[in-house]
Nucleic acid binder design. Structure first.
Length: 477
RNA sequence: GCUUCUUUAGCUCAGUUGGUUAGAGCGCCGGACUGUUAAUCCGUAGGUCCUAGGUUCGAGCCCUAGAAGAAGCGCCA
């Protein structure tokens, strides 16, 4: 087999006159002569010119939409307008025929809902290949940012014996056959006979274990899959999603916010610099889609301009109490336009967060110092004894992207909070040990990987930024 | 889990007040085409009108139940 040159390298490094072999999938075949070939190495396609005299008709007939071919020939300057160079094929080999009479995809716009059902084919489209190249880029940028800043990548468990992580319903893990599980005398399932000798679940967060790392190695982060068995039916929730959770010893809530802002901006900047073709395509896609929409429903800025705006401006920072005051003075509140009440002590609703971010501040907003009753047991109590050192980073269009806090490092206060919130000490003895034996102030946050990708790609549904989405009622592939 | 909307050809959709044989564009299939850029042009085929039951002389259209999908809300990341 001839050694292939990847199309990204052909367009970057190959010279006119070079003889090369390329391999990829046919995006379009026009005039029985022009193949737009894509091999995934970049957004761009290479035009392969089929010469009637050199390629036999039987082969030409098999060059169809999304068929896989190899082409060998000489790179020349293109006579056409759409590209600088093109490959004049001396030989073409069909690597994989495509039976178009049964193939569901078409060389035209298809709905996201339809493509979602064909998840094994959707990565072949411009939109999804762009999204998944960017998904890779974001994952890489995350690891690079933390590595370059002295953090250690820590792998927290996916199967956990703790059910007190406090972040939602869990999927249970067992090797028992349904209806054949051994029971104890009182009729409940006897997990002491199960694989791990106790009840186990899929993790909902690696934070508590990451705190173990931070209190030994200083700065750590987790980046892995997370599972929530919540019956959430929205375009922003998945049952299986990836989460990034840095945890930093000696940091307070303010350093935590600085990290969240710097980190978000770094990732966005990295994608702007390294994936301009993919971003430009996604940007144009949104603009085409919004052409037929009312002006007030369109994005206020293009995708690229939104991303640039975010990295060039400081995030707004307010306390929860200030947020309530601003909301109470707002026009929609005075006109009774909010569906939910605005009162100190209640959680901010999506409509309130959206108004703050999209109408009032018009940029990302960090809200901090929430009432203790609406936040988790491990968040550090403020001096007012009413609020905790928690913060949420809210992004336009998606709402909460990051949720974090300074953790309660004072043993007595942590115990009191656990009692108040009915968290059993015996299950989290190790967590209390971290305070008892050489504890330290520390802080961290959780970032929803798919949510930041939603923001960067401008996609509308979280199911379209993960290759195989798991949602209530759906675990295909 | 709640509210609303949707379901007609492979895809995206139209289908009037309940009335004969169910419509379009794209795709597919066949043909033409050596400078195309979602190529273009000509022609053919293609239907469990989501499912089950009901009303009616007659149902794609009305009623009941169910299924699937979407948007919004709640929970959160």
């Amino acid at each position: 087999m001839a050694k292939r040159t990847e199309i990204v390298d052909v367009l970057k490094a190959s010279k006119v006159g070079d003889t090369i072999t390329v391999k990829g999938w046919v995006r379009a075949f026009r005039s029985n002569r022009f193949v737009a070939l894509n091999d995934g190495s970049s957004f761009k396609t290479l035009q392969v010119v089929i010469d009637e005299e050199k390629i036999e008709e039987a082969i030409v007939k098999r060059i169809g939409f999304h068929a896989c071919i190899a082409a060998t020939g000489v790179l020349v300057e293109s006579q056409g307008a759409g590209q600088k160079v093109e490959l004049v094929a001396d030989s073409v080999e069909i690597l994989g025929d495509n039976d178009l009479s049964a193939y569901p995809l078409q060389p035209k716009k298809q709905t996201m809902e339809f493509l979602r059902e064909k998840a094994h084919f959707r990565m072949r489209t411009n939109t999804f290949s762009a999204v998944f190249r960017i998904r890779h880029g974001v994952a890489f940028a995350i690891n690079k940012y933390f590595n370059d800043n002295g953090y250690y990548y820590m792998h927290t468990p996916i199967i956990t014996g703790s059910d007190a992580e406090g972040a939602g319903e869990m999927f249970h893990i067992t090797t028992f056959e349904p209806n054949k599980a051994p029971t104890t005398e009182d009729g409940s399932i006897d997990y002491s006979k199960d694989f791990f000798g106790k009840a186990t679940n899929m993790t909902v967060s690696g934070q508590l274990q990451a705190e173990i790392g931070a209190l030994a190695m200083g700065k750590v982060y987790t980046f892995g899959p997370t599972f929530r068995a919540e019956n959430s039916n929205t375009s922003r929730h998945l049952a299986e999603f990836w989460m990034i959770e840095p945890e930093v010893a000696f940091a307070d809530i303010y350093e935590d916010m600085d990290l969240a802002e710097d980190f978000s901006k770094y990732i966005i900047k990295y994608i702007l610099e390294n994936y301009p073709d993919d971003l430009a395509f996604l940007d144009k896609r949104i603009q085409d889609m919004e052409k037929n929409m009312k002006k007030e429903l369109r994005r206020p800025m293009s995708l690229t301009d939104t991303l640039k705006f975010v990295i060039e401006n400081d995030f707004a920072r307010i306390t929860y109490t200030e947020a309530i005051d601003i909301l109470k003075r707002s026009k929609p509140y005075k006109k009774g336009k909010f569906e939910f009440p605005v009162d100190w002590g209640i959680d901010l609703q999506a409509e309130h967060e959206r108004w703050l971010v999209e109408k009032h501040f018009k940029k990302p907003v960090i809200v901090r110092d929430y009432p203790k009753d609406i936040k988790a047991f491990y968040m550090r109590m403020n001096d007012d004894d009413k609020t905790v050192a928690a913060m949420d980073v809210l992004f336009p269009g998606i709402g909460e992207v990051i949720g974090g806090s300074q953790r309660e490092e004072r043993l007595d206060k942590l115990r009191k909070r656990m009692q108040e919130m009915n968290v059993h000490e015996d299950e989290l003895q190790w967590y209390l040990d971290l305070r008892k034996f050489g504890g330290a102030p520390h802080a961290g946050f959780g970032l929803g990987f798919e949510r930041i990708i939603l923001f960067i790609t401008g996609m509308a549904n979280i199911r379209d930024v993960i290759p195989f989405p798991r949602t209530p009622g759906n675990a295909e592939f």
